[in-house]
């Protein structure tokens, strides 16, 4: 027993050590710094909750929260609908199954910055060229307004993550027992009924995972945001992570940015944990 304990901790130690060094310590330091007037070089005094009071009067930060939440809601819904549809499609008996899976997953292998720049080119140059050719006014000037910036980000995000989420849904769809589906078919259930009444409840655990992943991902999005719109026009498409980064590194208000980051952390943790809790309750065991 003792021996087993030792090997247990021995194996855990490297990961635990790394985690402590690069996650826990900085986190605690950051938390402490958020109560000071730290400018990145020196922290001269504790100023209590002053930073936090200021955060809630910061219009830019509040705008970023609203924008991020909107973005998260829309993109979570779309990513999951598209991901599930793709999964249903490639689990049918069609010939090019494997090829399609690879193709759908591929966007996820490209780095966020590069994707951002590629889509920037598509939205700005390709869209306007197509718009010119077909005479569609709506394709002009993408990313130059808040609305097109928003939808640009949503399209990019959905395109990138739908394939990843698809893989998760495929795993669960394939583990749905064949006999249940056959029994349902014999009982005269239509294709839609088989999906809605049998498959759907059984893939519920996949929703828990997928929603959690897409949620935390949507909230923490930074590189795509940076490459695609860089917050423009006039800072209106700035998401939370970027707003915090800019407070820290272009306004040099490190401590203030830390307090924003703490609030950001609490927000994401609260939303994500609530979501997991509710989804867990809905899962069906076989």
């Amino acid at each position: 027993m003792n021996n087993r304990n030792l090997s247990f901790w021995l194996f855990l130690a490297p990961a635990l050590l790394a985690l402590t060094l690069v996650v826990f310590f900085p986190f605690i330091y950051g938390f402490i710094y958020s109560f000071t007037d730290w400018n990145g070089l020196t922290a001269s005094k504790f100023i209590g909750l002053a930073n936090y009071v200021e955060v809630f009067q910061d219009a830019e930060f509040l705008d970023a929260i609203v924008f991020t939440v909107l973005f998260a809601v829309v993109s979570i819904i779309l990513v999951n609908i598209l991901g599930l549809s793709l999964a249903l499609m490639v689990t049918q008996k069609i010939k090019s199954n494997n090829l399609l899976r690879t193709v759908f997953f591929m966007p996820n292998l490209i780095g966020g910055l590069i994707l951002g720049f590629i889509w920037q080119f598509i939205f700005v140059s390709a869209f306007s060229a197509i718009g010119d050719a077909l005479g569609i006014e709506a394709l002009q000037g993408w990313l130059s307004t808040t609305e097109t910036g928003f939808w640009g980000l949503v399209i990019l995000n959905v395109w990138q993550y739908a394939g990843y989420i698809m893989i998760i849904y495929i795993a669960y769809l394939q583990s749905v027992p064949q006999e249940l589906l056959e029994a349902a078919e014999i009982d005269g259930a239509s294709a839609f009924q088989r999906f809605w009444k049998v498959k759907f409840p059984l893939v519920a655990p996949a929703f828990t995972i997928s929603l959690f992943l897409t949620l935390s991902n949507a909230f923490k999005l930074y590189d795509q945001n940076l490459a695609l719109t860089n917050g423009g026009p006039f800072g209106s498409t700035q998401m939370l992570a970027m707003e915090i980064y800019n407070t820290a590194f272009s306004d040099y208000e490190m401590a203030y940015a830390q307090s924003k980051a703490v609030i950001f952390f609490i927000l994401v943790a609260a939303v994500a944990l609530t979501q997991v809790y509710y989804n867990k309750k809905r899962e069906v065991d076989l």
């Binding site: 700005v124 306007s128 002009q140 000037g141 993408w142 990313l143 130059s144 307004t145 423009g232 026009p233």
Partner: peptide
């Protein structure tokens, strides 16, 4: 006024 439009792109 005399620029290529839309300027914000």
């Amino acid at each position: 006024q005399y620029s290529v439009q839309p300027v914000l792109s």
